[in-house]
Design a protein around this nucleic acid. Structure first.
Length: 290
DNA sequence: GGAATCATGTGAT
DNA sequence: ATCACATGATTCC
């Protein structure tokens, strides 16, 4: 099974750094009370501090010190305060389809009709491929209407990851087609290619409620965060914060539909389908992409 | 600060 | 009907 043959070439310059970053985040999450020093972390990983320094700046454009800060609870709280009011309310351009400037990765989205949703993917051909990304191995899924799925996996877990995704639309036909998905992967993980001239086409396959939640997520700008109840308010159901959480968790296009920017009221990260460590990594990485 | 407890909407069975 | 949740507010320590 050479599912990940495509990994032999690295589509992002940062792709191979994630393993190191993941270990660091896990270390500081375990004993964040002790505020481990850079030296301590480096020696636990068997690396020199300067080596670690280099990896981080290459990965996120962020020094290790700044990165460590970007990953604390304090910082998460700041993300929430940053823009008290407007975030979701200002950029209301939810009209389906029209090309809209939705967060900083420009995205045009359309939703599948309820009939298509009920078919559970029947009659749909989904092409998929695995690619390196700044957040580990990315599984990219596309239809002829645009990007339909984006999932993450650590090395060795590709099969479970694929299964997780195919279960969501069990009646679809799946074809491995790494060439077709490569262009998507390149555009998604290379911020310099995010532009309104070449918007990313995205198709949202889910229930009506889920689609409304995901559209709301698309309005959160890069480097900001909102709470689950903010989203509940935005879609006009202020008491449905918990239901929102469930819908956010079912987001099939992670990162592109930025579900990692949804936090608990306290600033706690609460959860992430592909692992809390990855959520931390994404938030830390984004604070370096100014 | 936490732990326990309750109200809550959605989706799967 | 019932159950599991990536919630949040309240009420105790």
């Amino acid at each position: 099974m050479n599912m990940i043959a495509s990994l032999s070439h690295d589509i992002t310059p940062t792709g191979s750094d994630y393993e190191t970053v993941r270990q660091v985040i896990e270390l500081i999450s375990e004993d964040y009370r002790e505020q481990p020093s850079l030296e301590a972390i480096a020696s636990r990983l068997g690396q020199s501090p300067t080596q670690l320094q280099k990896t981080f700046t290459r990965w996120a454009g962020l020094s290790p010190k700044a990165f460590l800060q970007a990953v604390t609870l304090d910082h998460a709280k700041r993300l929430l305060r940053k823009e008290e009011m407007p975030l979701l309310e200002t950029s209301i351009e939810v009209g389906l389809s029209g090309p809209s400037r939705l967060h900083d990765l420009f995205v045009t989205h359309e939703a599948m009709s309820p009939g298509e949703w009920k078919a559970r993917g029947g009659g749909l051909t989904i092409r998929y491929g695995f690619h390196r990304s700044p957040f580990g191995i990315a599984l990219v899924m596309v239809t002829d209407r645009g990007l339909a799925g984006l999932a993450f996996s650590d090395t060795g877990d590709e099969k479970a990851c694929l299964e997780d995704m195919t279960c969501r639309w069990p009646n679809a036909d799946y074809v491995e087609d790494t060439e077709a998905t490569a262009t998507y992967a390149e555009q998604i993980f290379e911020p310099s290619r995010w532009s309104s001239d070449q918007p990313l086409r995205v198709v949202l396959i889910g229930t009506d409620f889920q689609v409304r939640v995901w559209e709301s997520l698309l309005k959160i700008p890069m480097g900001h965060a909102v709470t689950y109840s903010d989203i509940a308010n935005d879609i006009g159901q202020p008491t449905a914060a918990r239901a929102v959480g469930a819908a956010v968790g079912r987001n099939p296009i992670s990162f592109v539909v930025p579900c990692h920017r949804a936090l608990g009221r306290s600033g706690a990260l609460t959860g992430y389908h592909w692992g809390l460590t990855r959520k931390r990594a994404m938030l830390g990485w984004e604070s370096g992409q100014v």
